[in-house]
Amino acid sequence: MERIERHASHDGYQEVWKHASVTLGCEMRFGIYLPNAALHGRKCPVLYWLSGLTCTEQNFITKAGAQQYAARHGIIIVAPDTSPRGDDVPDDPGYDLGKGAGFYVNATQQPWARHFRMYDYVVDELPRLVESEFPASDARAISGHSMGGHGALTIAMRNPERYRSVSAFSPIVAPSQAPWGEKAFTAYLGTDREAWKQHDAVELIATTTSRLPLLVDQGTGDEFLESQLKPELLRAACQAAAHPLQLNLRPGYDHSYYFIATFIGEHLDHHAKALR
């Protein structure tokens, strides 16, 4: 690994590292915030943040303002890139497929299958790396925005033993019923919609044995609310399955990081309670 950025922030450090990923077959970057407690050798719990379409590791660490809350609670925050990168990695002209659009699945279709294995990267490789190289405990939480909100919800429901809490901002709750998800899943997973269900929060709610409470914030002024995000589908699925859900509809807020920065403190409070 090589550290390529380091900035003092709220008595801790915001860093960016790069490393060779075996899972993805390319060089990857991730942001990591180390609070003061971690700098003094105390093993701290970790919140994994998954960003949305077109993002890199930079968007969350520079725009969300989460460091002050992570410092207060003594939480490490890890923010990986959203897809494999490099000259050998296939891409698509559209912003919603290929680089910047990994969708946190393991692709089974060509030409994507070799590199696009973001599910395994987030669930297995990245936590192993973080817990071996930094003062990080195995107490984990996961959160994300939009495509990353989809990733956080589905990964947490499929791996409840690995995460103590989960939350999401503006998640794509039913990618099988949204244009972004339909395009990505067809390319990465093929046309068999049964295979899609393992990466669809609304579908997983009906079958998961997990009862990990879901915290979701959604702005009512979000330009993608009706076409892509459809939080009412998650609410209905949770009601039908008696699955715990706190869905906060925030009047006037859009899809941007202004929304995330406004409520990220509440999400860090939520995770801190579970990570104690």
Rank of each mutant, 00 (worst) to 15 (best):
256 S>R: 11
104 Y>P: 09
113 A>P: 00
73 H>N: 11
90 P>S: 10
53 L>D: 01
158 R>S: 14
33 Y>V: 03
156 A>W: 00
212 L>K: 10
125 E>T: 07
30 F>R: 03
174 A>M: 03
206 A>E: 10
266 E>Q: 14
149 G>Q: 04
172 I>E: 09
149 G>C: 06
82 T>F: 02
83 S>Y: 04
41 G>M: 04
238 C>V: 03
48 Y>M: 14
80 P>A: 02
18 K>F: 06
35 P>R: 05
127 P>H: 02
131 E>A: 11
16 V>N: 04
144 G>K: 04
130 V>W: 06
139 A>D: 14
125 E>F: 06
163 Y>C: 12
50 L>K: 05
117 R>A: 00
191 T>L: 12
157 M>N: 06
176 S>D: 11
23 T>F: 04
154 T>I: 07
164 R>F: 03
161 E>W: 09
58 Q>K: 12
203 E>D: 15
244 P>K: 12
46 V>H: 01
11 D>I: 01
184 A>T: 01
5 E>W: 09
268 L>I: 15
68 Q>H: 05
51 S>G: 15
25 G>V: 08
77 I>M: 13
182 E>V: 13
175 P>F: 08
233 L>Q: 14
177 Q>S: 11
151 G>A: 05
154 T>Q: 02
115 H>N: 15
196 W>P: 00
140 R>I: 03
89 V>G: 07
53 L>Q: 04
70 A>F: 14
64 A>L: 04
2 E>K: 15
113 A>T: 00
52 G>M: 00
110 Q>G: 08
190 G>W: 01
170 S>F: 02
251 P>C: 10
112 W>P: 00
202 V>M: 12
41 G>D: 08
246 Q>A: 14
265 G>S: 05
175 P>E: 02
201 A>H: 10
146 S>A: 09
180 W>S: 13
215 L>C: 09
232 E>K: 09
121 Y>H: 12
50 L>H: 07
239 Q>D: 15
263 F>P: 10
134 F>G: 03
79 A>M: 15
178 A>T: 06
166 V>D: 08
42 R>N: 11
110 Q>L: 13
269 D>V: 08
139 A>G: 05
61 I>Y: 12
213 P>S: 08
229 L>V: 15
202 V>F: 12
181 G>L: 05
75 I>N: 07
157 M>D: 06
260 I>W: 06
180 W>M: 11
164 R>G: 13
126 L>T: 13
9 S>C: 10
245 L>D: 08
271 H>D: 09
191 T>F: 04
156 A>G: 06
156 A>M: 04
196 W>H: 00
55 C>L: 00
177 Q>F: 08
41 G>Q: 04
241 A>S: 07
250 R>V: 15
175 P>R: 03
138 D>G: 10
56 T>Y: 01
193 R>I: 10
93 P>W: 05
121 Y>D: 01
144 G>Y: 00
221 G>Y: 02
254 D>L: 06
144 G>H: 02
256 S>W: 03
99 K>R: 14
